[in-house]
């Protein structure tokens, strides 16, 4: 036991050493460059939109105070060359300032900050559930490759994979939430002030349907990835050794095969974040969940360009940062990445 612990400690130290400053720096710089690209692209994309940006604050002549409009134009750098405007934008961004959202009647940054955590709560819960259930199903299916369980799991998950998550959400509302249906769950929102449940239980009650819709659709990708990596590992020599030690079949699977097959699923988890963002937008729209997704949908009616721009930036930045984290985690869990 003590030997095992000592080698374990050594392995951990070796893992930490695998994160060489050079590797970390290259990944961080790469992510920073990507982030800069997204910012530039985002800036110019919304700048080529027609119209006077200051005017969008005064739709149809309301709040049409010429002095205020002039001040705003100056703050946006009107009349200056484009690169000066862009530097001004970057400067504002560095101070955590974006423009003002006229559909939400507050600064874009505040609107986003308010909606950030509900989205993390909803999408995060669904993502974790989908990954755990999907990997478990995939491992079982791949281990009994060709069995009835395997065929049923593959066919079912592929079918759910073809379902738009928001459509599933609508169906769930019709069946479980609407007055003509079972009426078991709330139709929309995150909490109900009239409810006598404790707050967290009320939120959980509101989460059941949207999380179910997202989870069911997300499961497939983890099932399929885990299934094929388990199939790859199934006949590996080290598994024969584990069996020869006299381990039971499920011990061989859980302690040995699963660990080695985990990495592609981890990759899938981080790669699917863009997908998760799309799911957040549509499912939050359907369930009126007060998160960033609903905010983007609300920004579309108008359209509220400053808000759209801000939300797009936050979504892209979130995905880039999560990918960076993934890149930094890989060498810790997989020696093969260290060698590369």
């Amino acid at each position: 036991m003590s030997t095992a612990q000592r080698t374990g400690g050594g392995a951990a130290r070796r893992r930490l050493r695998a994160l060489t400053p050079r590797y970390v720096a290259s990944k961080v710089v790469g992510a920073a460059v990507l982030l800069l690209f997204v910012t530039i692209f985002n800036y110019f994309l919304f700048r080529v939109m027609p119209g006077d940006p200051a005017k969008t604050f005064a739709p149809r002549g309301r709040n049409d105070d010429p002095a205020a409009l002039q001040a705003m134009r100056e703050r946006m750098g009107q009349g200056k060359p484009w690169w000066e405007k862009f530097l001004l934008y970057l400067d504002n961004l560095a101070h955590g300032e974006l423009e003002h959202s006229y559909s939400q009647h507050q600064p874009v940054v505040d609107a986003i900050a308010e909606r950030f955590w509900p989205t993390v709560l909803l999408s995060g819960t669904a993502l974790v559930l989908a990954a755990v259930i999907g990997m478990w199903l995939g491992a079982r299916a791949g281990w009994r490759h060709g069995s009835r369980f395997d065929r049923a799991t593959s066919a079912t998950s592929l079918t759910w994979y073809s379902v738009p998550e928001w459509w599933l959400g609508l169906i769930l509302i019709i069946v479980f939430a609407s007055k003509s249906g079972l009426g078991l769950f709330p139709v929309s929102g995150m909490s109900d002030p009239r409810s006598d449940l404790p707050y967290w239980l009320d939120v959980a009650h509101h989460m059941v349907l949207p999380v179910t819709a997202l989870t069911v659709v997300y499961i497939a990708q983890y099932t399929l990835v885990m299934r094929s990596s388990i199939i790859d590992e199934r006949y590996a020599d080290y598994l024969a050794a584990a069996r020869a030690k006299g381990l039971r079949d499920d011990q061989v699977r859980n302690r040995h095969a699963l660990r080695n097959a985990l990495l592609p699923s981890m990759t899938q988890l981080f790669l699917s974040l863009g997908f998760v963002v799309s799911g957040a937008i549509t499912i939050e729209t359907v369930f009126s969940w007060p998160g960033l997704g609903l905010l983007s949908e609300q920004a579309l009616s108008g359209p509220d360009y400053p808000l759209l721009e801000g939300v797009f930036l936050v979504f892209s930045a979130a995905v880039i940062v999560m990918n960076l984290i993934a890149d930094l985690i890989y060498p810790l869990i997989d020696p093969r990445v260290r060698a590369a």
């Binding site: 974040l273 863009g274 939300v311």
Partner: peptide, 19 residues
């Protein structure tokens, strides 16, 4: 870059461009 940028927000932004 295009692999990383989330599809739906990008599509929404571009849809504004091709107004």
């Amino acid at each position: 870059w295009f692999l990383v940028i989330p599809f739906l927000p990008l599509a929404i932004a571009l849809a504004q461009l091709f107004h």
